[in-house]
Simulated assay, not measured.
Amino acid sequence: MHETIRGLYQGVFDPLAWQRSLFALCRFSDSTQASLLIVDAGRHTVLARHTVHGVAGDPSQWSRSPGLISGLPAAGSLPVGSWHIDRRELPVPVSARYPLDGRALEEPPPASVMACLVDRQSSHEVYLAFQRPASEVVFSEDDARKLDWAIPHLREAMALRERMHGVAA
């Protein structure tokens, strides 16, 4: 836990430390993917600022799942620091099997998505999101509570990073 927190703050200067901390959170939550997402509801866009995978393999072969996007709550509906758990039942509708570029996914979308609203600005919301595939146990409220300790540190590290970029600009 302490190494993960340290990595978040070191990530202000070193993006690899940030990635290692997200990877540790991914493993700690028994997730296959952890992402820091920027959601712009006005433009209807989702930007994955950072994504790590907790499974072995070549990262270039992992597809970006639209299930993560559909598993997020509606803009403004979640208080900052709160968790949203999306437990979908399979089969997933055909429309959810295609990423934004229109190509069919080779793997099924996740059966469970868990996301915490880390920060809300007037122009966007920032989520820490985790995924598990259909073959794994769906997320529960206990899974979210086990990660609550990381959210204030993530929020502070993001604020420090923004200030640093502002000073550098």
Rank of each mutant, 00 (worst) to 15 (best):
A17Y: 03
L22F: 10
V55L: 10
V12F: 02
L37M: 12
P91Q: 01
H50T: 11
G67T: 05
S123M: 12
S65W: 06
A134P: 00
R88V: 04
V39G: 04
V55R: 13
S77H: 09
A24E: 03
G81A: 11
A144E: 01
L100H: 09
S77R: 07
S31H: 02
F13L: 14
F139T: 10
A169E: 15
P59H: 05
H124K: 11
E3R: 13
I5T: 08
A48Q: 06
L36N: 04
G11F: 14
S70L: 14
G166N: 14
P91G: 04
G42N: 13
L128R: 12
P15A: 02
A169F: 13
Q61L: 12
A24S: 13
R163E: 11
Q19L: 04
P73H: 11
A34T: 15
P108N: 08
W18I: 04
D119A: 12
I69V: 15
G57K: 00
R64F: 11
A168D: 12
S112K: 06
S29T: 15
L90N: 06
A134D: 04
A157R: 07
A159L: 15
D119T: 10
L100W: 11
R87D: 15
M114G: 08
L16C: 02
A150V: 07
L72T: 03
R145M: 01
P110Y: 15
L47R: 03
Q121I: 10
L128N: 08
L78E: 03
E107D: 02
V118F: 01
A111E: 05
I151R: 08
L25Q: 08
V52T: 12
G11A: 09
V167W: 03
V80D: 00
K146Y: 05
R88A: 03
E156F: 05
A115D: 05
A104C: 06
R88Q: 09
M114E: 12
P79M: 04
Q121K: 09
L25M: 11
G54I: 12
D142E: 09
L100D: 12
D148N: 09
L105D: 03
E162R: 11
S135V: 01
G54T: 09
S60L: 14
P93R: 12
V39W: 10
S77Q: 07
A134Y: 01
F13A: 08
H44A: 15
Y98T: 00
S65T: 10
S122Y: 03
V80A: 09
Q10V: 03
P99V: 08
V126Y: 01
M114F: 09
E3V: 11
I151Y: 00
P73C: 06
P79H: 05
I69M: 12
E3P: 05
R132G: 06
E136K: 07
E89T: 13
Y9C: 13
E106F: 00
L47N: 04
A24C: 13
E3N: 14
D86A: 14
M164Y: 06
M164T: 10
Q131M: 10
A168F: 11
I85C: 11
A144G: 11
A104R: 13
A115G: 10
K146C: 14
R161N: 13
M158Q: 09
V92S: 02
H50Q: 14
G166C: 07
P15G: 07
V167P: 03
S122L: 05
A134G: 04
F23S: 04
P99Q: 13
G42H: 06
